[in-house]
Design a binder for these strands. Structure first.
Lengths: 356, 356
DNA sequence: CGCTTCTATGTTAGCGCTGTCATAACGCGG
DNA sequence: CCGCGTTATGACAGCGCTAACATAGAAGCG
């Protein structure tokens, strides 16, 4: 009878029921297979592959040859489980089609490069419930750190993040107190500075074109900052126009047309971001308005597209790449949460451009 | 004595060496903790959480309450290892800053939505060696399927992909034979069709503005298709200009200027994509050229920005979202590789626009 | 030459979960 | 009231890997 005894490791592989799991197991090569071929123990193979602990050159060569011969690919599920360290960083952003988020991811990747860590990206679509699901789902991979855009989370999501014990960076804004670490800049202040800058340039008759405030809370903060700067000078917005959907060049174009149709004579229009402002520039081009003489335009973000326009867009450049990079660097440098939440300002700068 | 029985499972936890691993283990709640609190076995909790197998309503409630109370988050590393199924799909794209890739990812996410699967994204930066590393790294997570942009891989990467046994979709192009599945459209044909379309509109004096062919092989295929169409009509490109770097609006603007400075009188310029073509439109605006009368411009991709221009860009629209979505749907519908590689054409269409 | 100190490798015991095979309890028809 | 099919639950044995603790041999040293 082939019902031997099922002892030690896995003699049944062939014994009990002629390869019980072989048919469906496409997995194939494991550490044990490599070890057998190289005639060493599994742990030796493991150590050599991770450059961990000493190893005789001869053994190392034998093992590496066996790895190559078998086409062994380590199983990180097993590795992570055994070492309780997944080498994973969870990242949650609201969108990938708004170019600022891929840019942040670029910074994250740059900082992760060579660290052995891998980013797992979740996209929330500006939806807090989706975000909560993503938090749960990413936490289930036992990441070593987590990066999430913004401060707005459902109570459940916040509880999970806090309770997870992993380091958390909330990025893109610093206008609230973070759970652990915030990296970004103040959108309120950016809006305020925009107002002051434009007032300094002599503009007095302000209009505003924006997009969805519920989803994009940061756009709203910039608006509020702008309004505050105007109020301080005894002024207010003469006209304002906002769509419910996401920002886009087409929306900016339409909304500026709608804003101008409202009537009040304006000398400057501030847009919620560069996409919208670029649309505004297009509207001016199509209708023969020449910025900044006929109408000044101001954006936010410092996107390439705005700078490549025939008349470069006047805007504020934020440091998306730096934000992502800094967040990861700080997270990995200190693996336990500090007692006090930390805030890092990656700043912004005015790009004068030629539209305001 | 509170040392009741706690036996069976892991009595040494407290016995042998007073919590050997407890201090450093921030992990916290495990299935066992939930099971203990709900007074059932671990497997029962596991089954209930996965809706797998029968469960008495009372037990289910007790378990769910315990989960809530403890804040339990399942460990997918352990789950994946035990069930040899990670519920992961690996995705490798060359870039995130070129908007077409986030759009593909959007399709992938849409198809994955509700399936319980999660995408792990790698970005190769148009570098095949980086891509190879990503293949190894993603395969180590034992994904159930893999999506990768393009057909160009190092031999090692190809071997890993083939040997892994998982289903592979090579997306964005269909001009070569895939390992398993290809989803996208023919870039050569798109270029050819562009040529035919423009010839049909009466253009005869063609110029070309492009970007990095080594990294972006698909742009080159479109160029080759265009040249083939011209050759068939006894024509050829009168002038051509190309940068080594990635495409951008600014680059398109500069390169069109350089192209026109070359001398030959042109009546149409074909660009490697819409970013470049938008830059071309900007150059015309800045220099007073009015498309299409003074110079016709043609792009590729059908991006929003091109359509929002004062004169909408004439271009070809490809279906990035559909490509991503289709790839995942086909991959998940059939979990074993078909004997024959399969090719799915997601097509493209001409957007007449107003610049050609 | 006995003893410490490396260096190279192995043994053992899980990591936290799930597949598989029991087992218990409950109808229910004959 | 026996046997049988359900339904609900549990025991057990790993998944593939690695931390922690041996162990064995080779130096190093007074």
């Amino acid at each position: 009878m082939p019902v031997t005894k099922s002892t030690k490791l896995k003699p049944e592989r062939v014994g009990t029921r002629s390869g019980t799991r072989l048919p469906d197991r496409r997995q194939g090569v494991t550490l044990a297979d490599v070890a057998r071929l190289a005639e060493v123990s599994e742990i030796t193979v493991s150590r050599i592959l991770r450059n961990h602990g000493p190893a005789a050159p001869a053994t190392r060569d034998r093992v590496l040859a066996a790895v190559r011969e078998t086409g062994y690919v380590p199983n990180r599920l097993a590795g992570g489980l055994a070492s309780s360290g997944s080498q994973l960083v969870g990242v949650i952003v609201p969108s990938l089609t708004n170019i600022v988020f891929p840019e942040v991811l670029g910074g994250i990747r740059a900082a992760l490069d060579g660290s052995g860590f891998q980013a797992v990206i979740g996209v929330s679509d500006y939806d807090l419930v989706t975000e909560e699901e993503l938090v749960a789902s990413l936490l289930a991979w036992r990441p070593e750190a987590m990066v999430i855009a913004g401060f707005d989370h459902t109570p459940a999501a916040r509880a999970m993040l806090e309770g997870s014990g992993v380091r958390i960076a909330e990025i893109m804004e610093i206008d609230s107190t973070p759970i652990d670490l915030a990296v970004g800049h103040s959108h309120f202040q950016a809006g305020f500075d925009t107002g002051q800058y434009l007032l300094g340039r002599g503009y007095r008759r302000f209009g505003y074109v924006g997009h969805d405030w519920i989803a994009d809370r940061r756009a709203r903060l910039r608006h509020d900052g702008l309004v505050a700067a105007l109020a301080q000078a005894g002024l207010s917005l003469l006209a304002s126009q906002r769509i419910e959907g996401p920002s886009s060049v087409a929306a900016g174009r339409e909304q500026l047309a709608a804003l101008l149709a409202q009537g009040p004579k304006l000398d400057v229009v501030v847009f919620s971001n560069d996409d919208m402002a670029t649309g505004g520039v297009f509207h001016c081009m199509a209708t023969g308005l020449v910025p900044p003489q006929d109408l000044a335009l101001f954006g936010f973000n410092g996107l390439d597209i705005g700078q490549a326009l025939p008349t470069p867009l006047s805007t504020m450049r934020s440091n998306r790449f730096l934000t992502g990079k800094t967040a990861i660097e700080l997270l990995l440098a200190q693996r336990v949460r500090p007692s006090q939440p930390q805030v890092v300002d990656t700043g912004y700068e005015i790009l004068p451009g030629a539209t305001a």
